[in-house]
């Protein structure tokens, strides 16, 4: 059955399916129980599955991830919610020194099927530490999978595939898109479908420029493609879905067709996903490039105050400007 769901409800429905499917799945985080999470993503789950499976934890992110590791070692599949992107750093040690390396250091004897959900990104007029995009910090760490869905259908599919994965997954949810609606086939079994955790997808075909995005900026990229089409320019939109692993095969195939590439993300461009995509595109399809790869993203400043975030974020105009610049070559 196809339902019209918000992004948040799509994740909620995916979590519900996972809780129904596997008694070893449990959710843990701050305020995710009776309140349903500050974004209501876990709304109703504590009521239906009990507070033993939808667990309100002490306010300690390192403790949440550290105990999730122990639960996973005992055979459970914990899904942690970090309340906001900026609050993940107390857990950074557990994620990067412990969670990411256990499989490797045990030479494959131990697996840690832990999912860490992180509402991320800006555009909601929040106070500081509530609008950040730290995904690259985790993509830089071997042993972690880092993904970000861009629409409700993918959110529904990807959260279930993430929970089923034997690898630890950082699941970045574009919080600014939580209330956007989309069609979701809630009867489909994501575990029988191809993996969305390691493959980019071409969301819209085009011939002039490849526009690469993930998470919240995919919607922006589609709007850019619409606006550009009105001016007679054909944009191909690639949704990375995952930034670890980075599916450069799909990106490079697209750039070989278009000859031009722009990467857009909310995170700062310095050392960002765009830098990695640009380097790899240059290595893989240098002779197909008609223009330098351009990046559009956040600046090398702390995330600014809410009244300035519109200027900080890579919106329609700034992306169109980059598209114009690569086409001017």
């Amino acid at each position: 059955m196809t339902q019209r769901l918000t992004f948040a409800k799509a994740i909620n429905t995916g979590l519900r399916k996972a809780l129904e499917r596997d008694p070893k799945v449990l959710l843990m985080g701050e305020d995710i129980g009776p309140l349903g999470g500050v974004f209501r993503v876990t709304d109703g789950l504590a009521k239906d599955f009990g507070t033993d499976r939808v667990v309100d934890t002490p306010l300690a992110e390192s403790g949440i991830v550290g105990t999730a590791i122990g639960l996973a070692l005992r055979g459970y599949r914990p899904v942690c919610e970090i309340q906001f992107d900026g609050f993940i750093f107390p857990a950074f040690d557990q994620i990067t020194t412990q969670l990411s390396k256990m499989h490797y250091r045990s030479r494959g004897r131990l697996t840690l099927p832990v999912v860490i959900r992180v509402p991320f990104g800006g555009g909601i007029g929040a106070v500081e530490h509530h609008s950040e995009s730290p995904e690259v910090l985790f993509a830089h760490t071997a042993g972690l999978r880092v993904v970000s869905p861009s629409d409700p259908q993918d959110a529904f599919t990807m959260i279930q595939q993430a929970i089923a994965s034997p690898d630890p997954v950082l699941f970045f949810e574009p919080k600014g898109r939580y209330w956007e609606k989309g069609d979701v086939d809630t009867d489909a079994d994501p575990l029988a479908a191809p993996s969305t955790l390691d493959g980019a997808r071409v969301l819209r075909s085009g011939t002039d420029v490849t526009l690469v995005a993930h998470g919240p900026t995919v919607g922006t990229a589609l709007k850019v493609a619409d606006a550009a089409a009105a001016e007679g320019r054909s944009i191909e939109v690639v949704d990375l879905r995952a930034i670890s692993p980075l599916d450069i095969t799909t990106v490079a195939a697209s750039v070989r067709r278009t000859g031009r590439c722009v990467v857009v993300h909310e995170a700062p461009v310095l050392y960002g996903t765009g830098a990695e995509v640009a380097a790899r595109v240059t290595e893989e399809c240098f002779y197909h490039l008609e223009a330098p790869v351009l990046r559009v993203g956040g600046f090398h400043t702390p995330y600014p105050v809410a009244k300035l975030e519109h200027e900080y974020l890579p919106g329609l105009d700034r992306v169109l400007d980059a598209v114009d610049r690569v086409l001017a070559h």
Partner: peptide
């Protein structure tokens, strides 16, 4: 570790006390 119920050594001081706690919760 599972053959002797003795987890691997942990070099980051104190990190494993949380793993033990989570395991005990399990």
């Amino acid at each position: 570790p599972e053959a002797v119920n003795f987890h691997l050594y942990t070099l980051v001081i104190g990190s494993h006390t949380l793993h033990a706690t989570g395991y005990a919760m399990g």
